[in-house]
């Protein structure tokens, strides 16, 4: 089997240590188990798996749900979310880690989903804007964005909502200046920053337990 694996179309001249037993056929992803997972330690002792370049089934934890998705290694987390899981709240705008429209929570921290390979996300908790609230049950941040009209065309809005949510968890009492630097990784084109400033500070107040 090892020999067969070595002959798989792949990279000539590169060693291909593969993963041998204990993995069900087709599931090459076992080397990608969650860090600290129950079986993680045992698996980690195995030689590392090399997967791809074709599709491999991976398991992602998104908005508290376990989702199976088959991706090539080159597929970004953003494209996995949008194209394969129909979670289109995260937007594709610059696609190079500048504009913030694709911001998700990655183990609770804000991250650009366009700059993370989907396979890297295996074993991590992903929260997208869809996981923060629904139109009938808005989160405090979402409610304040609506209340202060912190949006126009709305295309950047989900990214801002996620970034703002993450920011206020770490910085519950920001000054206006701190808040705007804290959202320095997101752009809006319509120019909704005036409403956004009010929304961020208002949300901070509510999250601190204010009225």
């Amino acid at each position: 089997m090892a020999n067969d694996e070595a002959k798989r179309p792949g990279v000539e001249g590169l060693s291909r240590r593969t993963f041998l037993k204990s993995v069900g056929a087709g599931s090459v992803g076992a080397g990608l188990l969650p860090r600290g997972g129950e079986s993680g330690a045992a698996q980690a002792a195995e030689a590392p798996a090399v997967v791809g370049p074709g599709e491999t089934s991976i398991t992602l934890s998104i908005n508290g749900e376990t989702r199976e998705v088959s991706v090539e290694p080159r597929v970004t987390l953003l494209d996995a979310l949008r194209n394969r899981l129909d979670l289109t709240g995260s937007k594709k705008v610059c696609d190079e880690g500048t504009c913030g429209a694709c911001t998700v929570l990655y183990d609770g921290e804000p991250a650009y989903a366009c700059s993370i390979l989907a396979m890297e996300a295996e074993g991590h908790e992903i929260t997208t804007v869809e996981g923060l609230g629904t139109p009938d049950e808005l989160s405090a941040v979402q409610e304040c964005f609506v209340k202060h009209d912190a949006l126009q065309c709305g295309f950047c809005t989900p990214g801002f909502v996620v970034a703002c949510t993450a920011y206020l968890r770490e910085n519950p009492e920001p000054t206006p200046e701190e808040a705007q630097r804290g959202l320095g990784g997101n752009y809006c084109r319509c120019g909704t920053y005036a409403g956004m400033r009010e929304a961020v500070l208002d949300a901070a107040r509510i999250l601190r337990g204010g009225e």
Binding site: R17, G31, P48, A49, M119
Partner: peptide, 16 residues
Amino acid sequence: TFEYARPSSLDEAIEL
């Protein structure tokens, strides 16, 4: 397209 590996030790990483 490319292959992807996620080794758990430095030695493995370097070998890859």
